[in-house]
Design a binder for these strands. Sequence first.
DNA 1: GCAATGAGCGTC
DNA 2: ACGCTCATTGCT
Length: 669
Amino acid sequence: MTGGRVVRKGENRPAATLPVARVYVDVPLAHLDRPFDYLVPDTLDEAAVPGCRLRMRFAGKQVDGFLLERVEASGFSGRMEYIGKVVSSEPVLTPDLAALARTVADRYSGMMIDVLRLAIPPRHAKVEAEPPAEQPAPPAPPDTAAWGRYPRGPAFVDALRNGRQAHAVWQALPGEDWPARLAELAATAAAHARGAVIVVPDYRDVARVHAACVERAGADNVVALSADAGPAKRYRAWLAVKRGAARIVVGTRASVFAPVHDPGLFVVWDDGDDLHADPHAPYPHVRDVLIQRAHTSGASLLVAGFARTAEAQLLVESGWAPEIVAARDEVRKAAPRITSLGETDQQLARDPAARAARIPSVAFEAARDALKAGRPVLVQVPRGGYVPALACQQCRGPARCRRCAGPLGLPVSGTDARPPTCRWCGVPDTAFRCGNCGSRRLRAIVVGAKRTAEELGRAFAEVPVLGSGAKEVLRQVDERAALVVATPGAEPVAVGGYGAALLLDGWALLGRADLRATEETLRRWMTAAALVRSGQDGGRVVVLAESALPPVQALVRWDPVWHAGQELAARTELGFPPAVRMASVDGPAKALATFLDELDLPPSGEVLGPVPLGEPDRDGNTEKERALVRATRAQGRALAAALATAQHARTARKEPESIRVRLDPLELI
DNA sequence: GCAATGAGCGTC
DNA sequence: ACGCTCATTGCT
């Protein structure tokens, strides 16, 4: 009739140039974690820019996705689908971000689309339409003289100034104004037109560091990224960074992915805080992501805190990062006077009020003197909800399994007559013998310090008692006599510093059935003790824990480096992270067994367990189990790949149950 | 023996 | 939430 090819209404024609779009689709199936090719209709040729958000048909369904790149031809031999629509031409998936997300997904045996969900905030159309802010002028270089207190500090600052890449692990001096120090580094990078990302554990820290950065680099150059801001605010801040309008980003864990232009510096503060581990799949850790970004971008990296993690210690010992630490006499000048009190050497105070509070006299006197001087006193009490574990009756060290050195605990259900059992490999230990002191007796860990804090308040009835914890977190307290009772991580900063701190949660912290219990204990103690005035200025800290224990010694001497060295050596000997790469694998018993059976591990690979996962679910099922899988660090990639392959096989077979894989999980109970 | 209908499945 | 395959049903 009309002859030739008829273009019917609504029929698509491919774009004239680069008609193929490589697309990541948002589908939660492991075996589909790769790009798919679509045709770009000529009508969307302009709009379909690399990095934009899309919608299209996939297996009949409408799905969201990201356009990775436009190419000339596809290797796909089947019939390609056309892209449905371009949600927005804002190129949110930058090439750097795409590469990073792929790397992080592979590192954690997870899916790229899951990483993108963490990295790219939900779109807010109104915000996107707002006119972009102008790029501000770089700030003037800030005064960095305070870094002179640390022998290698000025060298790190110099590297930032000259655009050279530097890695470092920094242990801040007690009492250090660390937000100011980090802001100086960020402003130095920004002064040379480089970007900086500072990642801190929580929003209180974001506020402090943000203020310090604004002071040095001007409000235009700094952006705070915090998950608890509303969606509009969050997307506005993120877009400002992506469009190059702000050079310095301060934020919580999601800001590790912040798309800063020309990054010159990445910082993680207090890398031992478990808030740096994202609880969403694939469970990436801030420190690891920043190491990766520093590596690929050539930016400098600073891993910092008052305490030092075993992971940071490994960076130092492997030569990847030099350490920035003050000389011993500088530490002695800055640190408060710290006393430890074990159960054996606790003398109850003579004062009747103190005796009623069951407070040792040393602690009571330290608090009384500080209050008398008109200074606040910090009382650190345990948070609830610790898992009870077993310790050696004699040396109080955690009771460990003879086979795999996992923590021993009492089985949750059943009769009391059952022997202690390893929480990792499930082997019961009928004849416990402490590997440290040889004792055969065990004790259960008990928690009772919260009451002590309450009673302490009664002993000092004339001063106000301020609480800071899960319910309400205080940011700051004034320079006046007060008892500040706080749980770890919620300690307010005191103007001028606390006069004293009482650390009452030794047993609760050290007794946790967790690989990181001692490291975490020291970290929390140091974080609290760093808020106290120096010993020269009358500052005192009393910790209720046995002085022979390594973390107690490390606190008293203020030696986080020594403790991290001990910790890394112990983990190396036992075959735990970070000395090895480890993964936890959870799921219903049967599915888990099949998964482990199919797992094609690298040569060094080894499976521990599986063991029952303790708590029954709502329906009373206790079928879930957990296994630990480990391999040498050198075969870490192969381990992650093997786990991913096993997941692909499961999702491809449409197995109804899900298996959760976490690499280097923080908790290894 | 063969069309009409429905269930299951891959996924560009 | 599509369009393909394959099994089942129903009719001649």
